[in-house]
Structure formats: C-alpha cells, structure tokens
Amino acid sequence: MVDTVFLIKKPADFPILDIIGDNDVLILIQDGILRQPSTDNWYACKEDVIARGIKIQESKLLDYEEILNLIEKSNKVVVW
C-alpha cells in the first residue's frame, strides 16, 4: 500500500526528502522528469520520458494506467 503519491511537475519542485516515507512514492511527470531524485522510491511517466527523449531505466517507467492505479490505491496525493 502507498501512503502518499507525490506528483512532481517541475524539476525544481522536489519536496524535502525528509518528509518522504518508506511507503510514499514520487512520480515525475511533465518537465519533472528532467531531474531525478536521490531517493529510491520514484518513478517517471513513460509517455513524458518518450516525448522529451530522456533516457531513464525501464524499471522506473510507469504508463498512465499504472500511475492511475497507484493514485487510486494511495491514501493521499500531493502535487508539487
């Protein structure tokens, strides 16, 4: 179960990593994919990665359906 899903839309908008718990997930979307966080529990929107020609390892990519599933299963969603 995911406690909080953090949707990161801009590269400079990472929340303070101290507030990210073990059961929280960061999802990089839009231009947020241009900067990768220094934590392990993050993913990037596959469609945004492809559109911008960025290389991110396949295991870190989620498509829209997978992102929606995580959002539906989470307790809270925060958009940065």
Rank of each mutant, 00 (worst) to 15 (best):
L70T: 03
I16N: 01
L7A: 11
I16P: 00
Y43E: 05
G21S: 12
D3V: 09
D24V: 07
R35Q: 09
Q57L: 04
D24Q: 10
K10I: 14
S59K: 15
R52H: 02
A12M: 13
L70K: 10
I8L: 14
D24F: 05
I16F: 01
A44Y: 06
V2G: 08
D40C: 04
W42D: 07
F6V: 07
T4C: 13
I54T: 00
K76T: 07
I20G: 04
V2D: 07
V78Q: 05
V49C: 02
E58P: 05
D13I: 10
K55Q: 15
G32Y: 01
N41M: 10
A44C: 01
Q30F: 08
E66S: 08
E66P: 14
Q57T: 02
Y43V: 09
E58T: 01
V49L: 03
I20R: 08
E72N: 07
Q36E: 15
V79P: 15
I29W: 10
S38V: 10
I67D: 09
L7I: 10
K9S: 10
Q36I: 15
I71T: 08
E72V: 13
K9N: 10
L61V: 03
V2W: 01
I27Q: 00
D3T: 08
E66Q: 15
K46M: 08
A44R: 06
L62A: 14
I56L: 01
K55C: 04
N75Q: 01
P11Y: 09
I29T: 11
P15S: 14
E58G: 02
G53R: 03
V2Y: 06
D40T: 03
E47H: 09
Q57N: 06
I33D: 11
E58K: 00
A12G: 15
V2A: 03
F6G: 03
Q36W: 12
I8C: 09
L70D: 00
D3L: 05
E65V: 09
I27N: 05
D3C: 05
P37C: 06
N23L: 06
E66C: 03
S59F: 13
L68W: 06
W42S: 14
V5I: 04
M1L: 04
E72A: 14
K73R: 04
L61M: 02
S38W: 13
I33P: 10
G32A: 11
N69A: 07
W80M: 11
A44N: 11
L17N: 01
L17T: 00
Q57C: 04
D48I: 11
I67W: 02
R35F: 11
G21F: 10
L70I: 05
D40R: 00
L28N: 12
V5W: 00
V2T: 11
L28T: 05
A51T: 02
D24K: 02
K9G: 11
D40S: 06
L26M: 04
T39W: 07
I71W: 01
G21N: 14
K73I: 14
Q36K: 15
L7C: 11
P15L: 13
V79Y: 15
V5N: 02
V79K: 14
